[in-house]
Amino acid sequence: MAAPKRDKITRTVRLDVEVDERLQVVCKRLGVTLNSFLIGAIGEAIVRHESQMRIESGVMDVIRDAIGSMVAAADPEAMEKRMKEALGDDQDKAH
């Protein structure tokens, strides 16, 4: 028998008294419940961090490609091969 699907997960958070008091004031001013405020704040934090992780991943890909190009350019054999290929292409076009 399969386990029932859970739509919600309960998490417990321990707050300092001062933080809880400040949180309650903010929620009261905004006219929202503590739960809805916390869910929104967590959602915003997740989106911000996921975006940052995607940016970092993209930057790492660019850096990896650039390093690979520099390493290939520093390899004399690879450079000679590219030069021969380039010259060969030009000579083929001339004929």
Rank of each mutant, 00 (worst) to 15 (best):
Q24K: 12
A72Y: 02
E50Y: 03
L87S: 04
I63M: 07
M1N: 11
E44C: 07
R48S: 04
I63S: 02
K84V: 15
K8D: 05
R64H: 09
V71F: 00
V19A: 14
G58F: 00
L87F: 05
D61E: 15
H95K: 13
F37C: 02
D90I: 15
I9Q: 07
H95D: 15
R22N: 10
M1F: 12
I9E: 07
H95P: 04
H95T: 12
E77A: 07
D90A: 15
A66N: 08
S69K: 12
M83W: 13
R54H: 09
L15A: 00
K28I: 05
A2M: 12
V59L: 12
P4E: 05
P76I: 00
E50S: 04
R14C: 05
K8L: 08
S57T: 14
Q24D: 11
V71A: 03
I39P: 02
V17M: 11
R64P: 00
A74H: 01
G31P: 01
G68L: 02
T10I: 10
G88V: 01
K84M: 13
A3N: 11
V32H: 01
E77R: 09
V26C: 05
R64Q: 08
D16T: 14
S69E: 13
R14L: 09
A45C: 08
M53V: 15
Q91N: 15
D90G: 06
